[in-house]
Design a protein around this nucleic acid. Sequence first.
DNA 1: TTGAATCCTACTTGATAGATAGGATATGCT
DNA 2: AGCATATCCTATCTATCAAGTAGGATTCAA
Lengths: 151, 151
Amino acid sequence: MQVSARGEYAVRISVTLAHGHPRTISASTLAAAQELPRKFAEVILGDLRRAHLVDSVRGVEGGYRLSRAPEDISVGEVLRAVDGPLSEIRGRRPEETSYEGAAVNLPRLWVAARAAVRSVFDGVSLAQAATGEFPLRVAELTAEEDAWMPR
Amino acid sequence: MQVSARGEYAVRISVTLAHGHPRTISASTLAAAQELPRKFAEVILGDLRRAHLVDSVRGVEGGYRLSRAPEDISVGEVLRAVDGPLSEIRGRRPEETSYEGAAVNLPRLWVAARAAVRSVFDGVSLAQAATGEFPLRVAELTAEEDAWMPR
DNA sequence: TTGAATCCTACTTGATAGATAGGATATGCT
DNA sequence: AGCATATCCTATCTATCAAGTAGGATTCAA
């Protein structure tokens, strides 16, 4: 479950937009707020716009705003918009994998792993990510101390 | 949750070793069984050996075998041995992330996502992966039809 | 008309994945 | 001893991609 710089930036930007919703915020302001390169932020906002997750307004007083309510956009949608599918196995979708011999059951494992990832990223809205009020199922995952330990 | 070619190959090799356990199997045989490049399989088996997940025997009749019982090695261990940590956010561990402003709650989200991935990969042994008899919690994730659909 | 913003195209740079090559070294069998 | 079959080691290659930068064209409100 690698999240790229693009992915991380996109979520930080989106959460910032959610926080200020429905005001429009400029790329420079967003970049400054999250301390990320302005030009790169512009590129990412372009991706989000093309995915119809944000609307943009040109000109002075222009900027970006979420195209839907923050409660209605999931973190998963944002990640997919900039990084593609949440889960890939050697560049393929989990359900597209297929093996011979002792490995025949692996597709089910890949699908299970994807489902687990989805349950978190598709289950958390930008509004929840901004407030920190995660769904119970997600909050439980962080409750055990072990979840915070590297392995 | 991207699984690289190395990771996929490593799991396929490990599951094949689990299936034949405790016989030793040569790199060429393993590569042929799973239709992967022999030299690359050797490299991966070297990683698994250095991680103490497999033992090797040199010479004629040599090869590789799991260093522990297939019930006692998780898929997660195999993936970590060849690909490093299961989850990284812009190259950092989830619990090492830290943000300002509207993004302050994101570390909890990253940790939750990692916990979800771990619950699958650390919860499934090579023996289970080989037989397809996954733990109930994992099997449930693949039960819903939606889990098999791309998004 | 001017200033501030988005938007577009192109480019650079470094790292990494995914191999492949060739041979040194170990081991068992005859 | 000699040979076949393995592992093991070091090095190299190549294409792709992530991450970020550059420069300017376009839009729009005051």
